[in-house]
C-alpha cells in the first residue's frame, strides 16, 4: 500500500463515506439549527444591550459591563459544563440543545454588544447634535441616525465574531448534542477510521463559507462613504 493509498484509506474511505453520510448530514442540520438560533438571539440581545447602554443609566450600564466582561472572559465550554451538569442539582433540567443555545447566545450577545457599542461611540458627536437640533428625540436619533452608521462600522468585526462563536456549536458534542462533530466522533469510534471527521470538516466548510460570503456582501451593500 503506497503512502497515498494509506492516506486516502484513512481520510477519504469511500465505503465509510457511503455508510455514514446520512448521520453526518443530520448532524450538519442540527449544527445549522443551533447556529441560526444562536445568531438570531445573540445578535438581537447584544444590539438591545448596546442600545440600552447608550441611554447611560448608571446601574444598568454597570450590569451590562459586568455581563459583557464575564461572558467574554470565560471559555464557553466551562459555561456549558456548569449549566449542563450543575443546574440539575438545583432542580433545573435543561436539554443539552438548550444549554448549548443559551451559552453561545449569551457569549455572542456579549461580543455583539461590545462591537456595536464601539460602533455607536465612533459615530461623531456632531451627528447627535445635528439630529437633536432638528427636534429628533434621543431614541429617534439613535434609530434613524446613529445605528445605521454604527451597524455599518460593526459589520466586519461582527461577522468575524459571529463565525468564531457559532463554530463553538462543536462543543455540544461534549454534552451529547447530536450535531455534526458528535455524529462524526461516534462514527469514528465504530469504524476506527478518520474519514467521518474529514466529512464533518467538509460539512463545516459547506456551512460557513456562505456565511463569510454573506458578510462581505453586506459590507459592500452598505458601502456609502463617511462624509
Amino acid at each position: 500500500m503506497t503512502g497515498f493509498e494509506r492516506f486516502a484509506e484513512s481520510f477519504f474511505n469511500p465505503t465509510l463515506i457511503g455508510r455514514y453520510w446520512p448521520e453526518i448530514v443530520s448532524g450538519m442540520l442540527i449544527t445549522v439549527e443551533i447556529a441560526l438560533a444562536v445568531v438570531a438571539t445573540g445578535i438581537m440581545l447584544g444590539f438591545g444591550l448596546a442600545c440600552v447602554r447608550s441611554y447611560r443609566v448608571l446601574p444598568l450600564n454597570a450590569f451590562i459591563v459586568v455581563f459583557v466582561d464575564v461572558f467574554r472572559a470565560l471559555p464557553p465550554l466551562v459555561l456549558i459544563l456548569i449549566l449542563y451538569f450543575g443546574l440539575p442539582n438545583i432542580g433545573l433540567n435543561l436539554s443539552a440543545f438548550t444549554v448549548l443555545w443559551l451559552v453561545l447566545s449569551l457569549v455572542l450577545a456579549a461580543f455583539a454588544e461590545e462591537i456595536l457599542w464601539a460602533g455607536i461611540l465612533s459615530v461623531r458627536k456632531g451627528q447627535w447634535d445635528a439630529a437633536r437640533s432638528t427636534g429628533l428625540g434621543f431614541g429617534q436619533t439613535l434609530v434613524s441616525v446613529i445605528l445605521p452608521q454604527a451597524v455599518r462600522l460593526a459589520i466586519p468585526p461582527l461577522t468575524n465574531r459571529t463565525i468564531a462563536i457559532t463554530k463553538n456549536t462543536a462543543l455540544g458534542s461534549v454534552i451529547g448534542v447530536s450535531e455534526v462533530i458528535y455524529q462524526a466522533q461516534s462514527a469514528v469510534s465504530f469504524s476506527g477510521n478518520a474519514t467521518p471527521l474529514m466529512m464533518a470538516a467538509i460539512g463545516y466548510l459547506l456551512i460557513f463559507a456562505p456565511v463569510v460570503a454573506l458578510g462581505s456582501f453586506i459590507e459592500r451593500r452598505f458601502a456609502w462613504r463617511r462624509a
Partner: peptide, 25 residues
C-alpha cells in the same frame, strides 16, 4: 442650527437629510 462641520447624515441622500426631521418629528 448650522454647524462648522456640516454634520450631514452620511448614510442618507441629500433629500433624505433634509426630510428626516419632517417625517420623524
Amino acid at each position: 442650527m448650522v454647524f462648522q462641520s456640516f454634520n450631514l447624515y452620511p448614510h442618507l441622500t441629500v433629500l433624505g437629510n433634509v426630510t428626516l426631521a419632517m417625517r420623524k418629528v
